[in-house]
Design a protein around this nucleic acid. Sequence first.
DNA 1: TCCAAGGTGAATCGGAAATTCCGCTTCCAG
DNA 2: CTGGAAGCGGAATTTCCGATTCACCTTGGA
Lengths: 182, 182
Amino acid sequence: MRADARRNRALIVDAAAGLFTARGPEVSMEEIAQAAGLGVGTLYRHFPDRRALLEEIAAGALRTLLDAARDHAARPGSRWDALLACVRRGADLPLALTKSLSDGAEAHPELGPLVRGLDAMLEDLAEGAQREGAVRDDITPRQVVGLLSVAVCRPGARPDDALTIVILDGLRTRAASRGVRT
Amino acid sequence: MRADARRNRALIVDAAAGLFTARGPEVSMEEIAQAAGLGVGTLYRHFPDRRALLEEIAAGALRTLLDAARDHAARPGSRWDALLACVRRGADLPLALTKSLSDGAEAHPELGPLVRGLDAMLEDLAEGAQREGAVRDDITPRQVVGLLSVAVCRPGARPDDALTIVILDGLRTRAASRGVRT
DNA sequence: TCCAAGGTGAATCGGAAATTCCGCTTCCAG
DNA sequence: CTGGAAGCGGAATTTCCGATTCACCTTGGA
């Protein structure tokens, strides 16, 4: 593969990941091309269609996050801190893609296992956080993870958003949130 | 106006309001017609175009809610309770429409004043709730209102959603939420 | 220097939703 | 009871908009 082709492929992936992170999956090929400083035709030289591009980017994001999650889960200490660290790591990744690929993502040879693995790992952390008394236990671990992703990984979320702060606080038990706000 | 025409107009408005409340503003004319048990042609006999229909319904919802807000605001007692009651009254109204009409809603002869009036009234209540110590004061009254509308008036929200519960809890001061959960 | 790999973006395709239109049906005033 | 204006239905048409193609131009690098 020619050097410029390799470089352009990277430009496309970066530009697309950035846009997807900031604005969710409803970004047009045209716009991605423009953000990468290339023509649309070039996207199609590298990816047969839109779905292929989305899948590659989603897979990258999931791999990154799954690695981070394994890391944090292995380290001893507060499960809540570990969970929060994971989720924050996801804030600058285009995770909204994963949901939008829903139909067939399960079936996809790489995406399916990644999604399942990540879900399992995060739910474990959430359950641990509840057991250690850091997180309210009147909702399921799955809901805890869902709410965290709304709080932190929603497209356009920033760490000091009112919504982010309020959800994080609302997730804590009253006992746990008595201290400094996280 | 013929009796059946009046009846059908009402069917349209009701069906549309219901769909908009449940699913937000991205509902097709076709689907509204079907929900009303009528043909699309009939929608267009009553409303020149989609926007006209949305505007009428949004105006109705805003009038209803503004009335409710005046009512609750006038009654003495906890501003937080009043605010929560208002917002809950909005839960079964198609408020998402208002935002989607954003461009030009300010200019619209009826919508503009309604939106401004409602905003002012709710922000007042929010500020009152903060002053009485019920709501955390590290966010602005406008943000309080915004978060409440996400919690309660988001399309498809139900009062026992995890997101609803967590946001409502997260909005309270730690002192205020020490009692029974609202 | 040459030319295949690579790039370009206007033109085309496709599908979903809005809007039109005209023949048929239903009210209701006389 | 009727005539005909008011209403209705829904297939056909138009509009919109993003995905995808493709004929032609550039350029890396052997």
